[in-house]
Structures are given as structure tokens and as C-alpha cells.
């Protein structure tokens, strides 16, 4: 096991050490770049970008439409739907995608859209909470975040969120796993470089839930975190846990100013 880990670490280090053969000439990425902050869109191949560009061709929109349907569907013992309280999502949800996760004073902790929806379901609708990456959850999260489509990311990191932000930053820079790598080693130090056959991005969160070609469906940011953690041979946390909530806030803050792209399409 130890030897395998060493070999893996070697492979990881070698893969990262190879500089990208592509030099990014001054390509104009328009709204997908703000200063040095670049959306994953700018690292994707043109064919993948094209699938996202056309709202009709973007398969993630199938989940947005499903979410809209679920939004209006009564569920739970209280006989309510999302719409019963929140009416027209295009009005009531329009800043959610660009500002979450937020510090929720009433529960005294950081909350993202997924956890907020499940709190609504259990407390207000008297309905069963959804599984984190279930079709209904991905649908409603996509639908809600879509209402902020194009808005610049603008999360708050002060007040009650400050200590969460600090934890997220620590997580981001903490080496972990058998490869002994932190988030930053790929997504800050080596963004734009090749890791084997893929180009490393800055690891931005502004397009989630993102339709991944690999998954052949949309998935949550926390699912992506789990994938990254597994890649460095670290034990992943569960989706929706405090560790990943803090990391979500830090990652979203790294993308301040990038437009909400939900549902983005990526490799």
C-alpha cells in the first residue's frame, strides 16, 4: 500500500510538473473572465462550450425545467409547494444563485441552497428531505440558481460567515490524502496546465449544478469536491456537511464577479 501511494504521488507530481504546451494568447473570454478570475468555461473545449451556449441544446436545462415543475408541486403533510410560500421564483429567488451560501442567523450556521431547501421541506412543508444529488433536488437547485443567471457572484464573508470562510480557506490550502495535495496545488498553482489529458481549471463554482459529460447528468458542487478529494486519494466528506459548506463559501468567493452560469456544461 505504501509503495503504491508513493508511486501514485510520483505520478501526481510528474503530471503536475509538465507545463502546458498551450499558451493562452490574449483570447477574449468576455464575461467569463473578470481580472485574473476565469470561469471553467474558458478552460473547456469549444464543442463543450457550444453545448452550454445554446439554452435549448444544454441538457442541464432538462433539470431546470423539471425543477420548475417540482417548484409548483404540493408535497408533504402541510399541503404546500415551494410556490405556496415563495410565489414566482423569477422574483423571489433572483439573487439566491449569486449570494449563497449565506450565514443563516435563525439556525446559527452557514447554509447553501440544497440545505436551505431541505430545511424548508422538513420544517415548513412537513415533507421528507431529499437526497443531496437526487433528481428533484438537482432540479429545484438548478431552477432556483437559474433565476440569478448572468448575475455576478457576490457572496458575503463577514459577520457570521467570517469563521466559516476561514475554515473554508484552511481546507483549501490543507494538504490531504495519499498524494498529499491541497485544492490550491491544482487550482491556483497549476490552473491552465495539463493534468494528464485534461486542462486544470481554477475550480470555480459559479456554474453548479453543472452538467458533466463524464456524469452524463448534472451534479452538485459537493459531489465535485468528493471527486477531487478521491483523486488525491483522500477520504471524501459527505455532501452537505460543514466541511464542504465552508469550502463552498471559499470557492464561491474565489469566483466573485463571475456570472452565475447554472447549468454549466463541463467535461
Amino acid at each position: 500500500m505504501k509503495r503504491k501511494a508513493l508511486v501514485l504521488a510520483g505520478v501526481g507530481a510528474a503530471a503536475l510538473a509538465v507545463p502546458s504546451v498551450m499558451t493562452f494568447a490574449a483570447e477574449d473570454f468576455g464575461k467569463y473572465q473578470v481580472g485574473d478570475t476565469r470561469s471553467g468555461y474558458t478552460f473547456a473545449k469549444v464543442e463543450t462550450r457550444a453545448i452550454q451556449d445554446d439554452d435549448f441544446e444544454n441538457p442541464g436545462m432538462l433539470w431546470v425545467e423539471h425543477g420548475e415543475e417540482v417548484w409548483e408541486t404540493v408535497d408533504g403533510k402541510a399541503g404546500k409547494s415551494c410556490k405556496s410560500c415563495h410565489a414566482d421564483a423569477s422574483d423571489t429567488m433572483k439573487n439566491v444563485g449569486s449570494t449563497y451560501p449565506v450565514f443563516a442567523k435563525d439556525i446559527g450556521k452557514l447554509e447553501n441552497v440544497e440545505n436551505r431547501i431541505n430545511r424548508c421541506r422538513t420544517d415548513n412543508m412537513k415533507a421528507k428531505p431529499w437526497k443531496y444529488d437526487s433528481r428533484d433536488m438537482l432540479g429545484v437547485v438548478s431552477y432556483v440558481k437559474r433565476q440569478s443567471f448572468g448575475q455576478p457572484m457576490n457572496v458575503k464573508i463577514d459577520g457570521g460567515a467570517a469563521s466559516w470562510f476561514k475554515k473554508g480557506e484552511e481546507f483549501y490550502n490543507q494538504r490531504r490524502g495519499q498524494l498529499d495535495m491541497a485544492c490550491k496545488h491544482c487550482h491556483v498553482d497549476n490552473a491552465g496546465n495539463m493534468i494528464r489529458a485534461n486542462t486544470l481549471s481554477q475550480g470555480q463554482g459559479n456554474g453548479f449544478p453543472t452538467y458533466r459529460l463524464k456524469w452524463q447528468k448534472p451534479g452538485s458542487l459537493h459531489r465535485r469536491f468528493r471527486g477531487c478529494n478521491k483523486q488525491v486519494r483522500a477520504k471524501p466528506y459527505k455532501t452537505g456537511t460543514d466541511e464542504y459548506l465552508a469550502l463552498e463559501l471559499y470557492v464561491m468567493w474565489r469566483g466573485q464577479g463571475l456570472p452565475v452560469e447554472t447549468p454549466a456544461v463541463r467535461n
Binding site: 435549448f56 441544446e57 441538457p59 436545462m61 432538462l62 433539470w63 423539471h66 452524463q216
Partner: peptide, 8 residues
């Protein structure tokens, strides 16, 4: 004409 349907 363009068409899209969700299916595994």
C-alpha cells in the same frame, strides 16, 4: 428542428 429528452 431540435429535440432533447432526458434518458439515461
Amino acid at each position: 428542428i431540435k429535440s432533447l429528452i432526458s434518458h439515461k
